[in-house]
Design a protein around this nucleic acid. Structure first.
Lengths: 227, 227
DNA sequence: CGACAGCTTGATAAGGATCAAGTAGCGTGG
DNA sequence: CCACGCTACTTGATCCTTATCAAGCTGTCG
């Protein structure tokens, strides 16, 4: 089975990524289905492939020797993950929900990247964007109270889920991930995540129709926490 | 004045960076001297140039609206910084100590990168490495006590300063940065940094011949904190 | 209905922040 | 050479946020 890697500039026009939208750069990949919580690859595994999410949500994470887990990023529909600098995967990847992903062989790509300008530009842009996201994440983890972290998480997640109007809409998002996932992403505990969400609801900033659904009621207030 | 950008694989042979050591890829740049604490570029400035550190140490950081500062990274001799995905610098860059840096015009590079394989590979590798470092930093910030953060910082800094034998040597490093810089890098306060260093000295893990000099006496113990 | 997993809430404790004094190092000027 | 003042650093006391420990709650599935 061969699936083209469609290349879309997710983050606006970048000087480094002047690639037109969604034109299939012909890379062959294999689609695979992954049930929730199943590992896609482990920490230290040889990085033979990289992946694109077709549906569902994937987390990339690392385990500390005391058993705790740090989630580096959530990867949503259309996003690429598992693309490494070195020979091995530095993080594990696991399905948050049932997922479909496409695995692309990395072998051979290396040369293609520098033969095909568009492909080269796209991968370069991907690396730069990933770097910016990682830095943004660092910023959040380093400075910021539980409330700031949760607010930022909700805003980012809603944006990526494609909540239509970023401003001034009262949209409800379905959280694919558990409280534990959110905690491990934000460097908090599950209890603090829960308490903070409850507090935001009491303050009328969000509503929680169910545990996994969040309605953003006052985006301005959420953004204000951003500091 | 024209200065070549020497390309050296700092982090071992990478599949994405099979570029030979230190061959001048002919990029023209302008050397500039920057006194300590002087800003090189500000947050939001147009990213006309990127830079390489010739001597001294540079920090890239962001300021929060409550006045606090988060340092994203320290850049040491030979390292490149200010290389952005977008049109603007997302972070400010400042000299930690008196520095000499080379500024390279970004304009025109874009096309060169995809004409010259070696240059392309190098920049790609740079982006990937920066991403990994940012992720490593996230990991540290998210999970980790003050002691773990300080230990990791000392080990990383000593390694980058080129402490000869990574294992089993009792080397002394000169810290270019203030306690405040370290605090802002690790998401701690200046007092906690100071106290933690004092505690490590009391435990015989390090020595502090002077405030800005640290001797790593028990690397094994430092690494053990890594968790 | 009961069992289980995931979530919430409460009580308490610990780690780091904050507030507040010191102290050491260093350059300046007498 | 020493006194002075400045800045960076250290140390102490207290407070606050979040972690930890412990219960209860809710929804789902058999």
């Amino acid at each position: 089975m061969s699936v083209s890697l469609s290349v879309a500039a997710k983050h606006g026009p970048l000087p480094w990524a002047p690639v037109a939208e969604a034109d299939g750069l012909e890379l062959s990949g294999v689609a695979m289905h992954v049930p929730a919580d199943r590992q896609i690859y482990g920490e230290g595994d040889e990085a033979r492939c990289f992946y694109k999410v077709v549906s569902g949500v994937v987390r990339t994470c690392r385990f500390l020797n005391d058993g705790r887990r740090q989630i580096d990023a959530f990867h949503m529909e259309g996003e690429v993950f598992g693309f490494e600098a070195g020979a091995d995967h530095r993080m594990a990847a696991e399905a948050v929900s049932d997922c479909t992903v496409i695995a692309y062989r990395r072998r051979g790509l290396e040369t293609m990247v520098f033969q095909d300008d568009r492909l080269g530009r796209w991968f370069f842009s991907h690396a730069m964007t990933s770097m910016e996201m990682a830095r943004e994440h660092s910023l959040l983890l380093g400075r910021g109270s539980a409330t700031q972290k949760i607010s930022a998480f909700l805003l980012e997640f809603a944006r990526r889920e494609g909540c239509p109007r970023p401003e001034a809409c009262e949209c409800t998002v379905e959280l694919a991930m558990s409280r534990q996932d959110i905690a491990d992403y934000l460097g908090l505990t599950i209890e603090t995540v829960s308490r903070t969400l409850s507090q935001l609801e009491r303050d009328g900033v969000i509503a929680l129709p169910s545990a996994r659904r969040v309605t953003l009621k006052d985006r301005k207030a959420l953004k204000a926490f951003h500091s």
